[in-house]
Design a protein around this nucleic acid. Sequence first.
DNA 1: TGACGAAAAGAAAATAATTTACGCCACATC
DNA 2: GATGTGGCGTAAATTATTTTCTTTTCGTCA
Lengths: 287, 287
Amino acid sequence: MSILNAIREKLDDLHPKERELAEFLLERPQQAVQMTILELAQQSGSSTATVSRFCRSFHFQNFTDFKMRLAAELAQQPAQVQYQDIVAGNPLQEIVSAITANHLRSLTDTTRLLDLTQLRAAIAALHSARRIDLYGAGTSGMIAQDFFHKLIRIGKAANVYSDPHLQITSAASLTDQDVAVGISYSGETLETINALRCATEQGATAISITKFGNTSLAGHASIRLFTSSSEAGMRRGDMASRMAQLHVVDILFTGLVSEHFDEYVPRLESSFHMVRRYTGKEEREIP
Amino acid sequence: MSILNAIREKLDDLHPKERELAEFLLERPQQAVQMTILELAQQSGSSTATVSRFCRSFHFQNFTDFKMRLAAELAQQPAQVQYQDIVAGNPLQEIVSAITANHLRSLTDTTRLLDLTQLRAAIAALHSARRIDLYGAGTSGMIAQDFFHKLIRIGKAANVYSDPHLQITSAASLTDQDVAVGISYSGETLETINALRCATEQGATAISITKFGNTSLAGHASIRLFTSSSEAGMRRGDMASRMAQLHVVDILFTGLVSEHFDEYVPRLESSFHMVRRYTGKEEREIP
DNA sequence: TGACGAAAAGAAAATAATTTACGCCACATC
DNA sequence: GATGTGGCGTAAATTATTTTCTTTTCGTCA
C-alpha cells in the first residue's frame, strides 16, 4: 500500500483541492483507477490540471503511469470487508468487495475447521460403499446434486433426492454396506434429518455436512463434516455457506479420487471425453 | 493469469497480425503494459488499429482498460499453490491446501476481471425484466438453478431450463421486455448458445456468463460477464470454475437487491420467514 | 486601507493518445 | 479473369492529457 500510504502521509501538506482529490483517492481507489482524468477531476471536485499536477508532484511520469501503478497496488491484496449483510444502495464496487471477502473468509474458515480424521473416514466410506444416497433440501439440495454429478462421473452408484418421500423410500432400502450423506447448512432441516435417521436405522453409514456446532443432523451421523458458520443475515441468504459446502464436497471428491487414483481417474477421463464427444460444439455445429 | 491464459488459448484462432501481437504480449507482458498503443503496435509489428481491435475482441472496453487489467494481473503475487490438477496419492492435507488455494484464486481472479459497467447493465436488465429465462447444462445448469432460487425469492418471474427443447421453446416466447441468461463455463455449449441466440432473435436482452475470453456464447450476448479461466485439467473438473460462476451470481443478485432495496428486501424476508414457518423443525418435530 | 506579490486553481490551448471510418490489397470463389 | 470477402493500415475524428496562461485569493507591508 505504498502509494496510498504516501498519499495519506502527505495529506496535511497538500493544497486544498489536491487534498480533496487525495481524500477521494484514499476512499475509493478502486473506482479511481477506472476513471479518466476528467472523470476523476469532476468526481473529486477539482480540475484535470490539478489531477495532472498532483500525479507529477508524487513523481509519477504522468496520470496514466499513476493509474497503472495504483491498479497494480490494489491488485495485491483484495479489500477486506467483513461478513456484511445486504444493505441499501451500496456502491457496486463495495458490494463486490464485500461478497468477495465473505466468500474468501468462508472458505478459509471452513478449511481451518476441517477434521482430517473425519474426512478420511468419509472418503473410506464413500469408496467402499455399494450405494450412496444424497439428501438435501433447497440450496443444500443443489450441493447434493453437485456431489451426485461428481460421483457418477467416477461410476459410483449414487442417487440424490430432494423429495422427502423419495428420500425415505430410498433410505429404507439401504443396507450396512451403503452410505447416506445428509447435507443441511443449518443442520435442522427436518426432511434431511429424518432421511438420515432412517438410513442409520437400516445400518448405513451416515455422513453429515452442516455448519459447525452440534446440530441435529450431525447428531444422527457417524461421520460429521463441518463448514464455517457465519452469523445468519437472512437477506444475504446462504451464499457463503453454499460456497463452504461445495468446498467440502470438492475436497471429499478430490481426496476420494486421489486415494484411489488408478480406479477412478480413467473413468473421470472417459466421462470427460464422452461429454465432449457427444455434446461438443465442433462436431455438431449448426450453420 | 486469466488474461494471458485466455490469449494463449485463442492463439491459434487469431489473425496473423493479431497473433504476432498476442505472442509479443505473452512474451513481454511487463513491458507491454508500460507502452502506449502506438509503441505496442510498432514493437509487435502491427498497427494501432489492430491493437485496438484486438483489445475489443477480448471484450475489454478499450486499450486502456486492457492495459489496466493486465497490469493488475501481473501485479498478483504468484500463488503458493497454483491451479493444480488431481494427482495420485497426495497426502490429504496437501489436497485440502491445493483445493483451497485453487478456490481462493478463482474467486480473486474473477473479482479482478469483473467489469462494473457490464455488471450494472446486467442488474438493470434483470430489474426491469418482465420475465427471466436461465439456461445452462451440466454444472452450469446447477448455477442456473441457484440463480433461479435466488430470483424467485424476490418475486421475479424466472424460469430455468436444462432441457434443450424446453430452452428453445421458452426462448421462442420471449419478447424485448425479457431477459435471457446463458451460463456456460467453456462458452461453447451448443444447447446454451442456441437458446441464447433464439432469445436474442426474439428481442430479449441476452446476458452471458462464461470464462474470460471471446467465447461463442459471449458473442451472442449483449451483456457479457466473465469468470477467471484456468487451464483445463480434466480431472479437476469444473470445481474452481463453478465457484467463480456462483460468485458472479451472488454479486449480481446482491447488487440487484441492494439497488432496489425497498422493493426486494421485504420479499426476501418474507420468503425467509415462510420457509422457516412451513419447513422449520420447531413446529413439526417428530418425536 | 490599499497595493503588491505569491501561490492555487481553473480555462483553454496545445499536444498526445486512441478509436473509427475508409479504402486498399490479397486471397478465395465461381 | 471477375467478383466478393476479410484483414489490415492510413488517416481523420474523437477523446484524453498536459501545459500555458489567466484569474482569483490571501497575506504582507507600506
